[in-house]
Design a binder for these strands. Structure first.
Length: 268
DNA sequence: AGCCTTTGACCAGCG
DNA sequence: TCGCTGGTCAAAGGC
């Protein structure tokens, strides 16, 4: 069996995403039968699961692709830039210095950053860090503008991390987002739930997780529906807060009526 | 009050 | 040198 760097992280992330999607499937299948007019509330409940699952898969793909050999990565960059993209769903690439020089020659990039990497995703997601938008630019040749973000803690902690989000479309007219990260976070803000980390940074990711100065990647959603929604749903199911926190896992189990791990038996 | 987004102006790289 | 365009700044206004 082929192995690659950070295989353990990938296996863990894919496993989480798989289980979250199973829960989501169960929610969507049973929501109308059990709750009827509360379908909107159920949609809100399903949203974090869906986002978490996408983030997990995105993270895993980024890690797997950064484990590819350099030639493979360059070929993928060229395919993406030429529009012959098969990445209508989730995609991630790692750019190193030489890659950026290539991109600079063919594209419009002027300033080469030493430490940047990109991910492509079908939907923008909360990567766990706090960003502040500092610019928005209409890019010629596209129907979309490009948004520029910097770390909220730039002044306080001198964090130089930046993020650039460019919406675009592929040949199938499917919208997706190129997200370019520049510089690693040096602040003590929250660790990303599923950061598109290059190989050289994945170890840092693990160290931060173990140190515990940031929130460890969690099995449960990093954000939950607001308290009023949780109260409304839990009143139907008898779920209570434990130590001031909602038992999200139990609530979902009670809403769908069975453990998510058994979902495939009922839905197939 | 403090933090955010928006947006026009300005700077700088590139052909 | 000049024009185009991407990247950044900073004022203004909103929440």
């Amino acid at each position: 069996m082929a192995s690659f760097p950070n295989q353990d992280i990938v296996i863990r992330e894919v496993g989480k995403a798989y289980d979250q999607i199973k829960k989501l499937q169960a929610l969507l299948q049973f929501k109308s039968r059990k709750f009827g007019e509360d379908a909107l509330c159920m949609h809100e409940l399903a949203q974090p699961l869906f986002q978490e699952a996408l983030q997990g898969l995105n993270h895993s793909l980024c890690i797997m692709k950064s484990g590819m050999c350099k030639m493979e990565v360059k070929q993928e960059i060229m395919a993406t830039e030429s529009g012959a993209s098969g990445c209508a769903t989730l995609d991630g690439v790692l750019l190193n210095d030489s890659d950026q020089k290539i991109a600079s020659k063919r594209g419009k990039r002027r300033r080469t950053e030493n430490n940047s990497w990109t991910c492509t995703t079908t939907m923008p997601y909360d990567d766990g860090y706090q960003w502040r938008k500092y610019g928005d630019k209409k890019i010629s040749g596209t129907n979309f503008s490009r948004s520029y973000f910097r770390c909220t803690f730039k002044e306080e902690q001198g964090c130089l991390a930046k993020k650039l989000v460019q919406e675009t479309t592929n040949k199938d007219q499917t919208n997706f987002f190129h997200v370019t990260y520049t510089n690693e976070h040096t602040c003590n803000s929250q660790i990303p739930v599923s950061p598109p980390v290059p190989v050289s940074q994945s170890d840092v990711y693990e160290q931060k997780t173990q140190r515990g100065n940031c929130m460890a990647p969690n099995y449960l959603p990093s954000y939950l529906p607001d308290n009023s929604l949780m109260e409304a749903l839990s009143s139907r199911c008898g779920t209570v807060q434990r130590s001031g926190e909602w038992d999200f896992e139990t609530l979902i189990m009670e809403l769908v009526g069975f453990d998510s791990s058994d979902a495939h038996l009922l839905l197939t």
